[in-house]
Structures are given as C-alpha cells and as structure tokens.
Amino acid sequence: MVQIPEPQPAAYAAEPMGFYTDTTVCIGCKACEVACKEWNGLPARTDETAGGPAYQLSGNSYDNTGGLSGVQWRHVQFIEQFPNEDRSEGRWLMMSDVCKHCVQAGCLEVCPTNAIIRTEFDTVVIQADVCNGCRACISACPFGVIEINPVNNTAMKCTLCYDRMQAGMVPACAQACPTASIQFGPIADLRQRAQGRVDQLKAGGETRAYLYGADDSVLGGLNSFYLLVDEPEVYGLPSDPQLPSRNIPTSSTLSALGAVALGALGVVGLRKRRMDGFAAEAAAEGGGTAIVRDEPTGHVREEVRGE
C-alpha cells in the first residue's frame, strides 16, 4: 500500500525532494491541473494563452488543455493506442506531465540573469521578478516545459510548490491526486518506492514497466521522474535529452578556426598586393614594361610603365 506523506507542521529538511509519477494508475481526471492552477493563481487557457478561441475543444482525445505552458504547469496527456479501426483492442496511456526539475538543468545553465535558481530542495525555480523574458530557457529545456506567461510576460513553469514546501506542505497537485499517481517526497524514498512498484508490475505480467529519469543517466537524474510502460517518445519524452552547453566547445573551436583562416587569407591577400606593388614600382623606375600580378586574384598581366 502506497503511503502518502502527510502535511508537516514545519518546513521540510533541505534535501532533494521531488515527484514520482506512476502513469499506470493515472485516470486522467486532471485534478492535478486544477489544483495547480488554483494554488498558483494561474488563468485558464484563453484565446491569448492557447492560440485559439476560448474553451475550444482540441479534438485530441479528451485532452482540451493542450500541453505545458506558462499558465499550464501540470498537463495530463491522453494517449490512445488502438491499432484496429474498430477499436476492439487497445489501451489508454495517461501521464500527468510537469517540469522535471533536472539535476543538470539546461534552463538554469543558459539563463543570463540568474532568474532561474536551484533551491535547497534541489528543485529548479524561475524568479518572475528577475526574469527579463529573453526566452533562452524555453529553447534550452529538452522537454519543452517552459513558456512565457502572458499575464506577467516572464518565463514560468512548475515551482514544485516551493512556497508550500517551505511551509512543510505537499505540492498542490500531489495532494489533489486521487489515485496517488503523483507522489511527493524525498527523492531517495521515492526511488525506492518506484522500484518496488516496477517489481510489482513485472511480477503481475506488465513486463514493459520501467522508470524514466530515476537514475542519473538522464541529465544527472530527474527530480520528477516517471514509471512508464512504453517508449519515452510515446509520452512526448526524448530518450536521450541533452544539455544545451554540449555544443559550445566544438562550435566555438570551429568558429575560432574559421576566424583565424579568414584573418590569414585577408592578411596574405593584402601582403601579396603590397609586394606586387613594390615590384611594380621598381619596374616603373626602370621604365619599359612590368609583369604585374593582379592581387589577389592571381591574374598576370603586362603593364607599360612611364619613363
């Protein structure tokens, strides 16, 4: 039986805390989305925030909240897997998605204002009063979690209810989840609990069950990790997410080499022209004709010089 941590009277100890989401028990009720919006004062998707008329049905299964955004910090995915047209067999996959609070966080890495910080709980939080909306974090996040909140025009995402944690409370989504699909607690405890659930599922015949992001193979570990029963891509998760800084050393070296090559080409072109100029002057002093090389094209021509 899963034990859900009760609200504590004081702040949690400063240790890595996070979410473990067991997708096999998610029923798609979206209570987590509602609780998140209510606690964090986030507006509903409107014309402005969703890019379409307010309350329009998406046509994508029963999911009408679209995806994670600046005003949607939790999002329950509905994945329909029905191989036959008559839908006689198949299954639903549901997953409550959220910021992964990566141990190696791309957003934190690129943020040029230090608006994105790591808290004492090892979670990643954007300080809205510091963010200047450069949007570098949006393109850096390998999971597509962050977007601009149109209300305050800054980048926003799940804070793992930093304010509630500081008061010893469980994050709103985890508290609202009726099936304990979203579990909150110290990462070490969650990993142990999640591995037990994987073992249980495998023993029961669900051999596809595995943990995504529970160990340090994905960006040093995800402080919000998942129990999945299909490929990560099926849930909209990359198999091999990367840090944005991975390209900087090679990219910088290649650019520097190109700069040196261009500089050398330019200097050689100018030097050659200068030397050819001296030769032409010398020939002119002697009168008659001079063989002149057109710099820097290298074309050779005969030039008649003055007396």
Partner: peptide, 18 residues
C-alpha cells in the same frame, strides 16, 4: 546552445554565420 531542431543538431552554425 539550445535544444531546438537544426540549431542544436549541428555545431557549424557559428562558422556559417561568421
């Protein structure tokens, strides 16, 4: 130094733009 298609899939854009 992002995670976007094409931009982060090659390390040659710096040299190209230069």
């Amino acid at each position: 130094s992002t995670n976007r298609p094409l931009w982060a899939d090659t390390t040659l854009l710096g040299l190209l733009f230069l």
